[in-house]
Computed example of a mutant assay.
Amino acid sequence: MKIITNNPLVLKWFKEKFTVEYIECDYMGILIKCRDYIHKNYKLLTHPLSGSVKPNETPYKSILLIENDILDLDSLLLIEKAIDTTKKFNNNFKTPNWNENILNDFQIIDFDLLNNAVQNINFVR
């Protein structure tokens, strides 16, 4: 499994357990990077728009992928829709310049979503 993230908290907690690709970019950058991996036969294990925080509200996003044998069309459609949705949100309202406390809260939300997904995936396997 591979984690694509721009969240330093996710990097800190998961770098010893998984391959973590940490990228200093915005939410959209994470989606585009995941789309690149999907074109290289990776499959989404977490939804690119998971959680109730809108893509233009938080700067942080972490997505879990797994290598696949073939191009997963469901993952490709899902990431493309997520990119379109994020563009629409960003056109209507840009992500604010949050203070450090709020940024820390968003890191924890993103970490918690990913951690719950990892726990569920490991439980099923």
Score class of each variant (00 low, 15 high):
Pro55Gly: 14
Pro55His: 07
Pro55Thr: 09
Asn56Ser: 13
Asn56Lys: 14
Asn56Pro: 07
Asn56Ala: 07
Glu57Arg: 12
Thr58Ile: 14
Thr58Met: 13
Thr58Phe: 06
Thr58Pro: 02
Pro59Gly: 04
Pro59Ala: 07
Pro59Val: 14
Tyr60Phe: 14
Lys61Leu: 15
Lys61Phe: 13
Ser62Gly: 03
Ser62Thr: 02
Ile63Met: 01
Ile63Trp: 11
Leu64Phe: 09
Leu65Pro: 05
Leu65Lys: 14
Leu65Tyr: 12
Ile66Cys: 08
Glu67Tyr: 09
Glu67Ser: 01
Glu67Phe: 00
Asn68His: 15
Asp69Leu: 03
Asp69Asn: 09
Ile70Arg: 07
Ile70Ala: 06
Leu71Ile: 06
Leu71Trp: 11
Leu71His: 09
Asp72Met: 04
Asp72Gly: 08
Asp72Glu: 08
Leu73Pro: 00
Leu73Gly: 04
Leu73Tyr: 13
Asp74Ala: 06
Asp74Leu: 07
Leu76Ser: 09
Leu76Cys: 00
Leu76Tyr: 09
Leu77Gln: 05
Leu78Thr: 10
Leu78Met: 06
Leu78Ala: 10
Leu78Gln: 12
Ile79Glu: 11
Ile79Asp: 12
Glu80Val: 10
Glu80Phe: 10
Lys81Leu: 13
Lys81Ile: 02
Lys81Pro: 03
Ala82Met: 02
Ile83Lys: 15
Ile83Ser: 08
Asp84Leu: 00
Asp84Lys: 11
Asp84Arg: 14
Asp84Met: 03
Thr85Ala: 11
Thr85Ile: 11
Thr86Gln: 15
Thr86Val: 01
Lys88Tyr: 07
Lys88Phe: 04
Lys88Cys: 05
Phe89Leu: 02
Phe89Thr: 08
Asn90Leu: 15
Asn90Arg: 09
Asn91Tyr: 15
Asn91Thr: 01
Asn91Ser: 01
Asn91Ile: 08
Asn92Tyr: 08
